[in-house]
Nucleic acid binder design. Structure first.
Lengths: 232, 232
DNA sequence: ATCCGTTCTTGATTATTATCAACTCCAAGG
DNA sequence: CCTTGGAGTTGATAATAATCAAGAACGGAT
């Protein structure tokens, strides 16, 4: 690993509270790699050999059963994925696919488990990363069980708008069929949901969304920090 | 806290790898309490003041939005709940209700966060507990997004049968409406789902379930370790 | 036992969402 | 420029599940 890369990585939230020896141990077999879109990084059911951290880009976590498939989450920097499988030395529950060209930090799993047992700062960082991951899935489960697909879409739009500065005009950062899977609906249902939102003065042109009547959308979405705030 | 209680608690998976000083710190403000059914232990949105561990009994974690409510999980011994909120010093995302008379260990939150930073063994135990919790919700999200309600019920039956020794006859350990919420369906839909399962030779009498044709049920359920095995 | 409140079931209807099929649109490659 | 394949949309239909209403069954209390 190049020195400047090491510089960057050492400041990563996961490693910032590490002891020096832990850092050496962790970075020994670690590397940073660029991946093009559509690369498959993990497959569900495989052994957890690496912990992945997104330095730039976006990763889709997907899961399947029989012939069905769905998106569990979309991960961006600086977050990690499949921490839980690594911490427990178990099988991946999800497949990870690169959505857009991404830089990924890969840390071998065995040293991570070893480092946790000796370095409280690192173990705490892992615990906190996992706590965030837990809260995100728990929120997603609430989103899924408590809302209809139209409500989920409305909330996604509200959330995405806040994320992009609240200009009430933004683009959907990935394919609509991935958004559909993310929201737990068929692509056709997403199309129709967008059509329904016209009644609420939401205009769609390709990937561009313009919210003309913010109050109307927010009334439909009824966002709740306990479901929609990632950092509450 | 009584000496025999302390004896018992010190062997809890969360505390077994603690240093002696950490243990003292953690147990200072800790106590064990019995709660009757229907006690509300936490309310979503409240500050995380305690970490709860179930010593015996069963706890329901529920979440709500507008006037809708759903069950996120049912927790039994020796597991903890709301670890993530405690570790991050955030708000509870779920309400916890006592399902059946239960003994609960309550550990004040602040010492836990403090102990994590100094005791790698404890921090690791917390991380592992959280990793398990993460994997359970992730599995539940897969269950929810990939299966119909009939399939979820069939899998719950298969799972419950294994849990109770595989005798193909067992009882449902809580009210059917809680099972319905757990499975993400209306109580009426659960009734109808049970009626549908008669075609698969599953007989219901009150809370007692008898599976006459195991192969038929398993073919419908198609259980998958990556969704249904809690310890994979 | 009888009463009462709740849970559970069943029926009728509606709402929500998936599926299948056809068609448009657009971009990449020849 | 045309072709081609995938993404996205729209329509028709079916599957799935929620809601509302009424009755049955159950569990505690008296």
């Amino acid at each position: 690993m190049r020195a400047e890369e090491r510089e960057e990585i050492v400041r990563h939230p996961l490693l910032a509270a590490c002891q020096a020896e832990t850092l050496d141990l962790l970075l020994q077999g670690a590397f940073v790699q660029r991946f093009p879109a559509h690369t498959q990084l993990t497959r569900e059911g495989e052994k957890a050999d690496f912990l992945y951290a997104v330095l730039s880009g976006a990763i889709e976590l997907a899961a399947s059963w029989l012939d069905r498939e769905t998106t569990i989450a979309v991960i961006g920097p600086p977050h990690t994925f499949i921490v839980a499988a690594v911490a427990l030395d178990r099988l991946y529950l999800q497949s990870a696919r690169v959505l857009e060209p991404s830089r990924i930090l890969m840390l071998p799993a065995a040293p991570i488990r070893k480092a946790m047992r000796t370095d409280a700062g690192f173990a705490t960082a892992i615990a906190e990363e996992m706590a965030n991951a837990y809260r995100n899935v728990a929120q997603e489960l609430k989103n899924q069980k408590l809302r209809t697909s139209l409500e989920r879409l409305a909330n996604w739009l509200v959330h995405r708008d806040k994320e992009t500065g609240g200009g009430h005009r933004f683009i959907i950062p990935f394919e609509k069929k991935i958004l559909a899977a993310r929201l737990g609906m068929a692509p056709e249902a997403l199309s129709r949901a967008f059509a329904t939102l016209v009644k609420y003065d939401v205009r769609i042109d390709g990937a561009t969304v313009v919210v003309k009547d913010w109050a109307a959308l927010e009334k439909l979405a009824h966002p709740d920090p306990l479901i929609d705030d990632e950092t509450i």
